[in-house]
Structures are given as C-alpha cells and as structure tokens.
Design a protein around this nucleic acid. Structure first.
Lengths: 213, 213
DNA sequence: GTCTATACAGAGATAGAC
DNA sequence: GTCTATCTCTGTATAGAC
C-alpha cells in the first residue's frame, strides 16, 4: 500500500510476503548450490527457479555471498540442534547407536544440505570459516570429551576419540554426499528398507568394533 | 630409466616442451580445481600458476572442459591401478586390512585428487559421467563379489557387501576430503604418527566389527 | 608452435522508474 | 517495497601476428 515509511529492519514475522519469499529463495538456493557449487550457481538460476526477479533476491540478501552465508548458517544451526542431545545417563552403546542413526537419518532427509556443507569444507571453507569455526571446534571437543570419559572409565578400549568421530562422520555422510555414486553402482537409489539395513550395519560394525555388543 | 613416461591421455613425443608443459599444467589444475571447484576455477588462474599464456593452455587441451576431463581421467586411472590387487590367496582379514591401509595412504598422499573426485560425484558427475560410469560399476561389482564369497563361505557374517564398501570408502576418504576440518578441530594437521594411529584404529574397528580379529 | 589482442557471453551488482 | 534496465567486470575462446 502507501505506507511511505515502515520499520525497515525489525524482525519479520509470519504474514509478510518478504518472509515467505526468503524461505522460498533459500529452498531454491539449496538445490542450486548443491548441484553446481557456490561459484557454479548463478543468482539468475535461483531467480528463475522461484520466478522472482534477480534484483529481488539481491535486495533481500544483499549479495550472492549473503544468501549463501544465510543458507549455511541455517544448515549449521539445524546440524547442531539435531546432534545436541548428549548422553546424560544413557550407556555408551546407546549414545553411539543413537548418534549414528541420527546422522544417517539426516543424510537421508537432507542430502542437499550435507552436500553443500561438504563442498564448502572440501574447499577449505573459504566463505564461511568465520561462521563455522568456533561452533565446530567447541562441539567436537564436547563430544570427544564424553568419549574420553568412557576410555578413562575403561568402558571402551584405549582409543583416540577423534578417530571414532571421524569414522562415524565419514561413513554416515557418505550416504548423503555420494548418493549419486550409490545410485550409479546399484542402478537405482537405496530403498527405505535398504537404508535401514545400512543403518543397522553401520551401528553393528562400530559397536562390535568397540567391543560394546 | 630415461624419459619413457607412463603418460596416460596423450601421445608422448619424448621430451618435448609440450609434454612437459602439459604435465605442469595438469599439476597446477589439480591445485586450482581442488580449491575452487570446476566452475570456480579460471583458466587464467592456472595460467598464472604455471606462468604460461592462457591461450597456450587452451591450445593444448582444446577447452577448459578438456583439461578437466584429462585430469579426471588421470585420477581415475591411478585410482583403479592402486586398488586392483585382488587377494585371491590372502585371508579376508588381510585383504580388508590392506585395502583400508591402501585407501588411507592414498588419502594421505593425494588429497587434492580425492577432493576433485569427491566434488564431482557430489554434484552428480555432470562432467565425467561417461568416463567414470562403467569402470566404477564393474570395479565395485568385482569387489563386492569377493566379499559375497566370504559371506557364502561363512567366513564373515551375513552382510550386504556394498555397505561394507561404503563404510570403508566413507571413513577413509574423510581423511583426504575433510582434512581442513580435521585441521580446524585439532588446531593443526595430523602428524605422520597420528595418521598411522588413525589407520590402525580404522582397521581395528572394521575387522573386529566383522568378527575377524 | 607460441603468444598478443580481442570478440562475445554471462556474471554480480545497482540506479531509478513504478 | 518491487522490478526493469543497465553498468562493469571477468570468463572462455579464438583470430591472427610473430
């Protein structure tokens, strides 16, 4: 309408067209960035996908980098949310099982986000080092401390907690990041049942490998 | 001995400036493509790196895509070379151990190649699907057949060979592709000793997880 | 065979009409 | 607040001088 002036940068809520558009843009950006990488994605392609003018997107997010950072911040938040449940009272085997399953489910439900994150890390996190550096360090320290306690208590053998984390991360993220390779090899994507089997297999190997089952 | 070279995708005219330049270009391309992805890498950047005119590179390799494909073909050949030794006589535990160690060593010595390959797969292999499709299918079929025999013979439990391969691939490639993440978390890269520990850890978990040790 | 100069397409970003 | 038109830069690729 003709409100000549409005609160420009206060928090945006439900009804506004702006908020809805931003959500749609982020969703389209997720697809494009995952398919073509940061540099390989053009703002125009995202604009076409959501059928909005290119300038509109740049107006909302200031720049292509701004959009990309916003997306990666979203991804990182969901990431940390998802895996923040710490083994309070649960026995180690349950904590590890739940963690692996959680990561596998995330790979299943959000492969694009995993891919974007993976490519960013592979390239040395040139765009978002400042955003992810601290959270990632703290969070991995936290997790490895928990594992270290198990080692100190003699519940599991003398291992370096980091290598266990790396094994879990690598083997679970594989299902998201390399799903195309799996599809290529199998001739088709994994079914839900097969995916459950893969979950179970990964849990079994790790637990048995640690002497926990 | 002398200059008999095992160059793959070009006919070699011994000792020519052209051949040497092509090698230098491929090496520089490896660095650039790993750092910025396919689209994010400019021919100019590669030219600057090897201190040759941009047109020279395009003359040698026809196009940017031509250079990229040449590089990926090289990578794929080394990949298959490296892991083609099939232990028909060796016991399963040795085969698996050797395989994991081989993959870990490859991640250690050729992280850039692993990264380029990873990014290409993550994006759905848009550039080289025709090059990698058949070899990858055949080779993984071959490997999983070997594992399936162990299952049939009762040497290891009833598992889907593919999931074992995925676990090994994911957990070993992690050390190459995400070395920056490891460096971030640790504050420094893994030392040779730490890397050996990681190798040993991964082998132990997998073998014990399979009931082979 | 090698490199300089340039053509041409497409990128991100912005000014200004609506 | 939104979008059309445009500016400028950088990319790939090539034509033609050496």
């Amino acid at each position: 309408m003709s409100d000549s002036k409005s609160e420009s940068n206060t928090l945006v809520k439900g009804g506004s067209i702006r908020a809805k558009n931003k959500q749609r843009i982020l969703q389209a950006a997720e697809q494009e960035f995952a398919k073509h990488g940061y540099k390989g994605t053009s703002v125009q392609a995202i604009a076409d996908s959501v059928q909005l003018p290119k300038a509109n997107i740049l107006y909302y997010f200031k720049s292509k980098t701004g959009l990309y950072k916003a997306l990666l911040t979203d991804i990182l938040e969901m990431w940390n949310e998802g895996f923040s449940a710490d083994g309070d009272e649960k026995p180690p085997s349950d904590v590890i099982r739940d963690y692996i399953i959680e990561k596998m489910r995330y790979s299943r439900s959000h492969p694009l986000r995993s891919k974007i994150f993976a490519m960013e890390i592979i390239q040395g996190a040139p765009n978002i080092r400042d955003v992810i550096e601290q959270p990632m360090i703290e969070w991995s320290k936290h997790k490895s401390n928990i594992i270290q306690e198990w080692v100190d208590d003699g519940v599991i053998g003398k291992i370096n907690p980091l290598y266990l984390l790396f094994l879990i991360w690598g083997s679970t993220q594989f299902y998201a990041d390399f799903d195309r390779e799996i599809e290529l090899i199998q001739g088709r994507p994994l079914s839900d049942d097969e995916y459950s089997e893969a979950e179970k297999f990964t849990v079994d190997i790790v637990l048995k490998g640690l002497g926990l089952s």
